[in-house]
Amino acid sequence: MIRTESLYKSFGEQTVLHGITAEFKAGKMNLVIGRSGSGKTVLLKLLVGLLEPTEGRIFYDDKDFGSLSKKELRKLRMQIGMLFQGSALFDSMTVEENIRFPMDMFTTMTEKEKLYRVNDCLTRVSLTGVNKNYPSELSGGMQKRVGIARAIVLNPKYLFCDEPNSGLDPKTALTIDELIQDITEENRITTIVNTHDMNSVMETGDHIFLLYQGRITWEGNRNDVLHSTNETLQDFIFASPFLRKLRDTAILNGKSI
């Protein structure tokens, strides 16, 4: 579980986040949705400590993130995995070396154990036979899978995904979403996903936070979305006239989506 208490973040004059108070539950897909530029990435970077909040606090299972000692922070870091928007695989390393990297850097595992774990993770994300390939030789969807494998290699308790679907076709995007969801539920991970993809919202949204102009203006799950009267939410999910028509027809016929 991760909890924030009135988080503020400003860059100079511009305040991007205006007091975010939220609780992200364990074993659930916690989705942060919002238009491009609404501050999703900034929120994620605050949570993982890449940025410092201007004000407010972050708790990891009731441990105050801001007041951890160096040693505690290092321990917590090993429990955090992150999937980046562009996968952020290291170009100079093969797929295998990328996935091994956290183990090489922070554990005393033997070669054999590491190799076993690498193949385990690759199997989990349904990728095999690419151990010796370089990231540039893989498709976007495959790179995302390798990114996931690297993020979960140390069995994290917390997983962060920044726009896992960006740059993928809808079908591939969906399989990536499902993969993240399955891994989350299998290992009871606290997963926080940034997305502006309405497909992922409707398919995987256990707990959804709508970020609008730096505030959380709506909270709920995927079943609540349809019946919500929140205009920003409706605008966001049903962005095109086509989708709105679809929604209205569904409601008219008493169907759920």
Binding site: K45, V48, G49, L50, L73, R74, R77, M78, I80, M82, F84, Q85, G86, A88, L89, F90, D91, F101, P102, M105, F106
Partner: peptide
């Protein structure tokens, strides 16, 4: 390309 961020998060 956020490689540095990725390493920082791992604790490097």
């Amino acid at each position: 390309k956020e490689h540095i961020d990725a390493m920082e998060i791992m604790g490097v």
